[in-house]
Design a protein around this nucleic acid. Structure first.
Lengths: 126, 126
DNA sequence: CTATATGTTATATAAATTATATAACATAAT
DNA sequence: ATTATGTTATATAATTTATATAACATATAG
């Protein structure tokens, strides 16, 4: 799986990395139980500090996406996290902002839903 | 229009304020051409610094939501910003993250789309 | 004209966040 | 024994976020 960091982005490196790992899991590029590179290896591969990778692994562990074994390192959890109340609050909050913003700009409901659908189509590979 | 800032939130104050103004415009609580409180007035009302309000007004001016007249202060723009390529990149990026994340957690396409629809229903006050 | 209110600009400061750099430790695998 | 793993501890630097004062130019109100 290829990780690509945009060092010019306003999005923090650890946030970009975390999103790409979740994307990899969602798309099946990272299988359940699959082992991730060690913090040192991945840090070297993408040219960032080992602590930044370690931070991401621990965030994703706390969210329930990864498990970390002292011996083998990080791997994709066999059981994905649930849709918690906290997570629902998060996506509703973010969706509201995106929808309010696009609504002001004249984007209609159908157009917005079609964008969502196209992302799902890409995700479930057509 | 009532502004409510959560000082415990991890979301910056200026971000919270900006989102609520856009929400107000989307919901019609703030009409086109309507005058907003002065930076000093609003800052005092919600208990924050005038520069934080000023920052928000200028961000929203640059995005095309507000116009700022030296005499009358900030007001809601009569012409809302367009769905620019930059904006499309933004919402696709954010939607991808939300969808990948919820997809991992077992939320299906229909459930997700229903959340979006309910936000639209609230927005168009059904 | 005077006083007030407006956005604006300029500094300065403090706290938190983000990212890196070294170093060391305990433990498991080779 | 050596190596690789996550982990912990400091330290530092840059950036972001938020506040605090002060001042300026200008338009409006009295």
């Amino acid at each position: 799986m290829i990780i690509k960091i945009d060092f010019e982005s306003e999005i923090p490196i650890y946030e970009q990395l975390g999103r790409q790992i979740i994307e990899g899991i969602a798309k099946g590029e990272l299988k359940k139980g699959e082992q991730l590179p060690s913090v040192r290896q991945l840090a070297e591969d993408i040219g960032i500090n080992l602590h930044t990778v370690n931070k991401v692994y621990n965030i994703l562990k706390n969210e329930g996406f990864l498990t970390i074994d002292r011996r083998k390192g990080a791997m994709v959890n066999n059981l994905m996290p649930e849709v918690t109340e906290e997570f629902m609050d998060f996506i509703v909050r973010e969706l509201k902002f995106i929808i309010h913003n696009s609504y002001c700009r004249g984007m209609g409901r159908e157009e917005f839903l079609n964008i969502c659908k196209s992302i799902y189509d890409e995700l479930e590979n057509k």
